[in-house]
């Protein structure tokens, strides 16, 4: 196992442990945070606060680094445009999150704690990703290349 992979494994274990300690592996607690008109449970806000503190510092340290500690180069998201895909996708994600009380991290972590219901959710989630991927490839193929050519000429 190379160093990059070892770091990723360590980060994954720490992340999963953090999810379990913070109560975020519990779908009912996550839904209680979203239930602002009921017995509101603010725990998720404390989790977010705790997670943001090291990360704000990490982004500052990153600026001082020529390259990451064990990888050849930084490979970070570069998209800057607010588009309909981002907003629609995040809204659809939020609907699923509210329905089940699960997002990808806790769902995968819960494979170790509640294997069957978590596996059902994770399998459906991967299926949803695949459907979206196939759909967007199909749409790209449908778009007439003439439009792209007209723009460049």
């Amino acid at each position: 196992m190379n160093r990059q992979t070892l770091i990723a494994l360590a980060a994954g274990i720490l992340f999963g442990a953090g999810l379990a300690i913070s109560g975020m592996a519990d779908p009912a607690r996550v839904r209680a945070f979203l239930d602002i008109t009921g017995a509101w449970d603010p725990t998720l806000a404390f989790v977010m606060g705790g997670a943001l503190i090291p990360m704000v510092l990490a982004w500052r340290i990153r600026l001082k680094l020529q390259r990451p500690l064990v990888a050849p180069a930084f490979d970070l998201p570069t998209a800057a445009k607010l588009d309909a895909k981002l907003l629609a996708g995040s809204t659809i994600f939020g609907i699923g999150w509210g329905i089940a009380g699960l997002c990808p991290g806790p769902a995968i972590a819960d494979l170790a704690l509640q294997p069957w219901p978590a596996a059902m959710f994770v399998f459906a989630m991967l299926t949803g990703m695949l459907v979206c991927r196939m759909q967007s490839r199909f749409m790209t193929r449908l778009a007439p290349p003439s439009i792209i050519q007209r723009k460049t000429t």
Partner: peptide, 12 residues
Amino acid sequence: GGLLVGYGTWLG
């Protein structure tokens, strides 16, 4: 929930 989370996180 899983289908929507998967579809939405891919699109978003």
